[in-house]
Simulated scan of single mutants.
Amino acid sequence: MKMLVIDRFEGTYAICEDKEQKFFAIETSELPQGAREGDVLNVDDAEGTLTINAEATAQRRSKAKKLQDKLFQ
C-alpha cells in the first residue's frame, strides 16, 4: 500500500508527495471527504481508492508541532 501526503491545493488539484519525494496531482473530487493539507493518504493498490490515515496524520502533526515549539521557545 502506497502512502501520500497532501502538500497543497492548486485549483482543482491536490498536490501530493510520496516518501521518495515524487509529486502527484490528484483531482480534489477523488479525495476522501474532509481531506486537507498535511493529511496522510493510503492508496489501495488494487482499486486505487484513497483513504485518510488518521493515525499517521496525527503522528506527523505532533512531530511538526514539537519541532515548531522547539524552534520558537
Rank of each mutant, 00 (worst) to 15 (best):
M1V: 09
M1T: 10
K2Y: 11
K2H: 14
M3W: 12
M3P: 00
M3Y: 11
M3G: 00
L4M: 15
V5Q: 14
D7S: 07
F9H: 05
E10G: 11
G11Q: 14
G11W: 06
Y13C: 11
A14H: 06
C16D: 06
C16T: 09
E17S: 09
E17A: 06
K19N: 07
K19Q: 15
K19A: 14
E20F: 04
E20C: 05
Q21I: 09
Q21C: 09
K22E: 14
K22A: 13
F23D: 10
F24M: 13
I26L: 15
E27K: 08
E27C: 15
T28S: 09
E30D: 15
E30N: 13
E30P: 03
L31H: 14
P32K: 10
P32D: 13
Q33K: 01
Q33M: 09
A35L: 10
R36G: 13
E37H: 07
G38A: 09
G38T: 03
V40F: 03
L41G: 02
L41T: 03
N42W: 02
N42P: 04
V43M: 00
V43S: 02
V43L: 04
D44Q: 03
D44H: 05
D45M: 07
A46V: 04
E47P: 00
E47R: 10
L50Q: 13
I52K: 07
N53T: 01
N53M: 00
A54C: 08
A54K: 00
A54F: 03
E55K: 08
E55M: 00
A56M: 03
A56S: 07
A56C: 04
T57L: 01
A58L: 01
Q59S: 06
R60L: 07
R60F: 03
R60K: 10
R61W: 11
R61T: 13
K63P: 10
K65W: 15
K65T: 03
K65I: 04
K66P: 01
K66C: 01
K66R: 08
K66V: 05
L67T: 02
Q68T: 03
Q68W: 01
K70P: 00
L71E: 08
Q73N: 09
Q73D: 08
